[in-house]
Design a protein around this nucleic acid. Structure first.
Lengths: 139, 139
DNA sequence: ATGAGTCTTGAGACTTTTTATCAAATGAGG
DNA sequence: CCTCATTTGATAAAAAGTCTCAAGACTCAT
């Protein structure tokens, strides 16, 4: 139950938090902005405030339940943290997002950080391009 | 002369554009936000409008004179485009930015894009961490 | 269950960053 | 140096996100 996940994360289990967590777990979109989540909840008839959505997402991020990304447009999007770090391939036409993991790139990043004496805390790689479908549509 | 660079980029040579280009070329900071540039110009006694700074930076980006980045905080920063693509290593304490290029990572990115059928248009890799100096300061 | 007390919520005001509007100023070509 | 299209600057407005605070929801001990 999502109840337990919240408690494990050190967060009191409240209705808005449950709703948001459930939405992230069951939505067809894996990457959603605060606004997306807010609208999705209103659509289901759940009456949350936008401020709450922002607040809860930040708490989730701090608790490690969720990962925040800044895609090209500068807007924050959130995705469930399922343990495994991964990078993103994004279609600039339709917004499609593909997740991938490349062990060599991961290792190489550590090597680079070491080379400059940095203690690495986080890293993200975004590849932007045009997905197969959009290549056909726009010849 | 910067005059020529602007013309080559298809932009009429005007005072604000010249000032901004010169600043980017000669400033000690390679990565500046619109606000940074605005303040820097006011400091030298150049009387530009903030709106102009934003407008000109966007034009420069479109013309390929400048590259825009979205670092973790979600703020846009700009750097001169000197032809060579590169990635960034950033200190989360002091904001230091190191640029690097790793040919293997570059190639691997193409391979990944191909694997998913994407036509790659752009890519950026940000490694966040703590730089050598900041590691000493905060034991 | 119930009530005390703390934590959380929601509405709206406010910040910050960025874009749009439009009259006045500027630059390029003749 | 005059004309005309472009560009600029001030200001208003949009967009994204944060802050405040009274009212409401949870938890725990009873």
């Amino acid at each position: 139950m999502e109840n337990q996940e919240l408690k494990k994360a050190g967060l009191k289990s409240t209705l808005p938090r449950l709703r948001i967590l459930q939405l992230l777990e069951h939505s067809s979109q894996r990457h959603m902005s605060a606004e997306d989540i807010y609208k999705a909840l209103l659509d289901i008839g759940e009456d949350v405030g936008l401020a709450t959505v922002y607040r809860v997402l930040t708490q989730f991020e701090t608790a490690g339940l969720v990962v925040r990304h800044h895609f090209e447009n500068g807007l924050s999007v959130f995705e469930l943290n399922e343990g495994q770090h991964h990078d993103h391939l994004l279609c600039i036409k339709c917004g499609k997002v593909v997740e991938f993991l490349d062990n060599f790139i991961e290792k190489q990043q550590c090597t680079i950080a070491q080379k400059y004496g940095f203690e690495i805390t986080e890293h993200c790689l975004y590849i932007y391009g045009i997905c197969p479908k959009c290549q056909i549509k726009t010849p």
